[in-house]
Computed example of a mutant assay.
Amino acid sequence: MTPAKLRKLEVDQLSLLKMQQSIDFNDYRTRLDGTFHMNTPRLVTREPNWIVGYEYKTNLNDNQHYAEIPGFYHDFGMEQKFMAIPERTRPDMAYGVACHFEEDGAFSFIVGEESSGASQVLEPGFTSIEIPGGLYAEFTVEGSGQDIRKMIYGSWLPQSNYERREGPDFEVTDVWKSTLEQLDMNIYIPLK
């Protein structure tokens, strides 16, 4: 449930809510056959940049997005959608940007690349988004594409001295150094 939806509930409805169980990361590590590893993030200040990419729709409900996002990258690459991006400045880096969240859990996931042509007319299905500059926690993904966002939001962020600020979180993958089995990816969470 999104925070906005929770705030709209009546007081007597709050007692009926089932709170999410806390995540047992030792259990999570065991289910991944002991291969789970998350590095301590680096704190980096990023300049704003424009991403142009293809916009896919998914949903947080029932963890639908975890199943669908790998397919978005596959579609983007196999259909060579990157070729429709004007003025590509870093064709070796693929971005995945989670944005446009709605109260029902729906959101957009944009797969694209950096571009200096954000204001140009784009082909149908494509969009541009500015990644705001500022402070970010940069997490490095090692090994396969296990989802570390559960650990970031469930463990690291609540225990850090930071809060998540407005803006999309995103991932950047070096497409030349990555394989399906071994990703070269960083995940960025905006902080204040």
Rank of each mutant, 00 (worst) to 15 (best):
R88A: 01
V97N: 00
R149N: 15
Y188Q: 07
M1Y: 01
L183C: 07
P86C: 10
M93I: 12
T127W: 05
H74A: 10
Y136F: 15
F82G: 01
M151C: 08
S22T: 07
S15L: 12
E102M: 15
Y188D: 05
S128V: 05
T179N: 09
M151Q: 14
Q146Y: 14
K57H: 09
D27W: 11
M19K: 10
E114P: 01
N61G: 00
E79I: 01
I189K: 07
I85T: 03
E68L: 06
V11L: 11
A84W: 00
Q182L: 13
A67G: 12
P168V: 03
M185C: 14
K81V: 00
H74F: 13
G133F: 09
Q20L: 10
K18Y: 10
I148A: 02
V175C: 11
K57T: 15
D184V: 12
T173C: 15
E102P: 07
A84L: 04
I110Q: 01
S178T: 07
M83L: 12
F72Y: 08
H37V: 15
D184I: 06
G133T: 06
P86D: 07
D24V: 05
Y188P: 06
Q146G: 05
Y54M: 01
Q80A: 03
F76L: 00
L9R: 04
G145C: 09
E114V: 00
Y136E: 02
M83P: 00
E68C: 04
D33T: 13
R88E: 00
V52L: 07
F139G: 03
R88G: 00
L60G: 01
L17A: 06
K18T: 13
Q20E: 11
G154P: 08
F76H: 00
A67H: 12
H100T: 04
V175G: 03
F107P: 14
I51D: 00
R164G: 09
D62A: 07
A4N: 09
L9Q: 03
G71P: 06
F82L: 02
W50E: 04
I189C: 11
Q159W: 06
Y136A: 06
I148T: 03
Y73V: 05
F170E: 00
E47I: 06
H65T: 00
E68K: 04
D27C: 10
H65F: 15
F101P: 03
D62F: 03
I51Q: 00
N161G: 09
T127C: 11
M19G: 06
V172G: 08
L157M: 15
K192F: 13
D62N: 11
Y136W: 06
S119I: 06
